[in-house]
């Protein structure tokens, strides 16, 4: 069986539409990861031992268990406790929470990179904790973290096909469906791979430029 270009052309619009769902899942997931990760990172700097310990354990646990099981957990277990989400929403939450464990580490590195004198200066100026984080620490901690966050955006993008396991009609699930209906898996799956490859390669180029832009100045 050889590669059928006409069939490929025929299914391309369907795949592109599904690709939008993939992009949507990535962007919403990343938005959650960016916010939640920052919360974990700040909690880890809290003065309360219990809070820092809980945040560290949670991050470690999320990072060392498979995303697929976490997706299943949110999809199958939470409804037993009255929390039921649509498949795509489940995907947003799972991707967002999973990657928040990674972004938290990135933020932590950024925060630890802020010189000690800056914290002391904020205290000396009698700033409240909120003012200190907002006006002194974060503006210095975040820019160096941007390229690493970009890498996790690409990693998350490549993890979205897992949502096919809970019937989200993203790229891979659509390719699978086309394959099942037409008995031709070669073209839809190859096109799926090509789309992922194109976007990943382009975005890693973009991240390389970000790295130059936000490189820490000595």
């Amino acid at each position: 069986m050889i590669f059928d270009w006409r069939f490929t052309l025929e299914i391309t619009p369907m795949l592109l539409r599904a690709f939008l769902v993939t992009v949507e899942a990535t962007l919403v997931g990343m938005a959650i990861a960016l916010v939640a990760g920052l919360v974990w990172a700040i909690l880890r700097r809290s003065r309360r031992r219990l809070l820092t310990g809980a945040a560290s354990t949670l991050i470690e646990f999320v990072r060392s268990t498979p995303l697929l099981i976490q997706i299943y957990f949110i999809f199958f277990v939470l409804p037993e406790f009255g929390l039921q989400f649509a498949p795509l929403t489940t995907g947003f939450i799972a991707l967002g929470l999973h990657y928040s464990a990674y972004t938290a580490e990135v933020y932590r590195a950024g925060i630890e990179g802020v010189p000690k004198g800056q914290w002391e200066a904020a205290v000396a100026l009698n700033m409240g904790r909120y003012r200190m984080w907002r006006s002194v620490i974060l503006p210095q901690a975040l820019p160096p973290a941007i390229p690493a966050l970009g890498n996790y955006l690409v990693a998350m993008f490549k993890d979205t096909p897992m949502l096919a396991a809970i019937t989200v009609m993203e790229l891979l699930q659509t390719a699978k469906l086309i394959g099942a209906q037409s008995f031709r898996y070669l073209e839809p799956l190859t096109m799926t791979g090509v789309l992922f490859l194109l976007v990943s390669l382009l975005s890693s180029q973009f991240i390389r430029r970000l790295e130059l832009r936000f490189a820490v100045r000595p």
Binding site: K158, D159, T160, P161, M162, A164, L172, L189, T192, G193, F196, L197, S200, L201, S204
Partner: peptide, 8 residues
Amino acid sequence: RGTSALVQ
């Protein structure tokens, strides 16, 4: 590295 493990 450019394509997703599951797609592979």
